[in-house]
Design a binder for these strands. Structure first.
Lengths: 302, 302
DNA sequence: TAACCCCATATATTTTATATATGGCTTATG
DNA sequence: CATAAGCCATATATAAAATATATGGGGTTA
């Protein structure tokens, strides 16, 4: 017994007439008679009483009719849901964010905006480091990520550049350079550099070291912090200085001051990461909103 | 999209492997691949990700899976309900009762017993007169009736005798005959007979008049009561006497006393009425219970 | 009594789903 | 590194199913 049989059943019940029901169903009368008989015999009950003027529901038919209608409704809803999912109007998006990304105003702004535009979509957010994000992406535990390029070579992750964030120097309070309008990296040669470990964020790590090299010095690597924001307390503790994305200046941790870097300064690049070759509407929409937000929201004062 | 597609969908989701799913479904792999692809294209979404080790659900598939399961469950339930209805284990029975029938202990007893035996069956009861019961039966507003034969000639009602109930004479309190152990009808010649109108109960009416005739007298017809039980207040009001089914003595209306009738006494016959040529299990069961109850419950003291 | 309406049956046709055979791709294994 | 095995996709052929057409029977209405 198919869905079709339910439709036949309900239509005949509504018209009370097999011939008219066949017409409404866009078919001829004999096959409809035949199918409804087959349905009845497979169920073991008569659904209709054959009468001279047409047919009427038996008690069993009367009882079963609402069930049949329910099933048809659910099927309709199933199809509609599927279409909604296809168009990205419904669904769920698992978003992975690299460290400290939520501190960038554009990102939470974009997320809020997206969930306003697409109320049928639920979101889940998770913060992690870039390699872990890539792996989660590829194992389908996440759908889209905002990460710090580059990604591991073999990773089938498509990287879409999103924005370049300036970096700031984080100095412990009372440091002699605190008064300078901007600081050239070369002056930091003597300070231990507290940095986010390379294996957890090679892009950011390399950018900083390249800038040091361009400034003609080699940093003395100090302690490593497991998260980008984790460098701040270490600086505050006087263990060294750090180069951090600009957005971290929002962390109002006492004991640390943030300072402009004289050119050439490293940048913290953020990019969108999605699975290679995959771009469902849902993800496409979200990317559009993200890009728009980063463009208009032009990243903030220093 | 058929029910079949839902089964395919769910089974593949459960095995994570089209080949194994095909095996479980008792079919080959290619048609299953083909059908699931057809389903996906008709829905416009990918339900599965084709992977080297098998397939895994996409987010859309994950979302839709419980819906598909629900539809399958409802279909299963639909079929089970249909079978239940076919066997008379489920359903609804609309029962029509002639006037004063509920006063017979056997009837409510049988009804209670039936609803204990068949908890899946709901019952509705309605009390009316015999011609109206027949009409309700034939227009499918009732499924089974307990009526007082005979039924109108042209009525396609099958009548199954159920029981013969003795009748009693109803006298106003203080009537001279009150002290007699039993009363012969001939002694009522002078009393106006209050009776249920012939058009609403020809069988009962004719039985009473035949008894009068056998007793050698002709009753002087008094007022008519629209219901059998309605004769009692009229007797109490002193408007005459009445012949009523024995079960009415249960009505403890003051002002009336009930008395045995000396032979030959009229009988009030009760019968089951169902549509001609129709005997679904539900009705069959109910009839059995009724007949059993009337046999064992041997009708009461006078 | 004739005409009409409606459902059932029979046969032919078409559509549809299925099985068989095969190829490509990826992952385990010697 | 090569070979084998597992899994899905495609193509073709076969089988099954639903459908349309044609027709007949029962019952009601004019």
């Amino acid at each position: 017994m198919d869905i079709r049989h339910f439709r036949y059943f309900v239509t005949i019940a509504e018209t009370g007439n097999i011939t008219k029901a066949a017409e409404r169903l866009g078919m001829e009368q004999p096959p409809l008679s035949q199918q409804i008989r087959r349905l009845e015999s497979s169920l073991g009950v008569s659904l209709f009483r054959r009468q001279p003027r047409g047919v009427s529901l038996t008690e069993a038919g009367l009882t079963l009719l609402p069930h049949a209608r329910l099933i048809l409704d659910l099927r309709r809803q199933f199809i509609e849901d599927a279409h909604g999912l296809a168009q990205g109007k419904k669904g769920h998006l698992r978003i992975g964010l690299a460290g400290a990304v939520p501190l960038l105003p554009s990102i939470p702004f974009a997320i809020r905006q997206f969930s306003n535009i697409s109320p049928g979509v639920t979101l889940s957010l998770e913060e992690s480091n870039t390699p872990a994000l890539c792996e989660a992406l590829l194992s389908y535990r996440m759908d889209i990520t905002i990460l710090r390029p580059p990604v591991p070579d073999q990773a089938n992750v498509r990287v879409i550049p999103l924005l370049d964030e300036p970096t700031l120097i984080a100095l412990p309070k009372g440091h002699p350079f605190t008064d300078l309008p901007e600081i050239h990296l070369s002056r930091l040669a003597a300070e231990p550099l507290i940095i986010f470990p390379r294996e957890l964020g090679p892009g950011f790590f390399d950018a900083i070291l390249a800038a040091y090299r361009d400034a003609g010095i080699t940093p003395s690597l100090g302690q490593q912090a497991p998260q980008i924001a984790g460098t701040i307390p270490l600086v505050a503790a006087g263990l060294g200085v750090s180069i951090v994305p600009q957005s971290l200046h929002q962390l109002h941790t006492g004991g640390v001051t943030f300072h402009k870097i004289a050119r050439p300064a490293p940048h913290a690049t953020l990019a969108i990461g999605i699975r290679m070759g995959e771009q469902p509407p849902l993800i496409h929409h979200f990317i559009s909103v993200l890009q728009q937000a980063c463009k208009t929201h032009l990243e903030l004062p220093a």
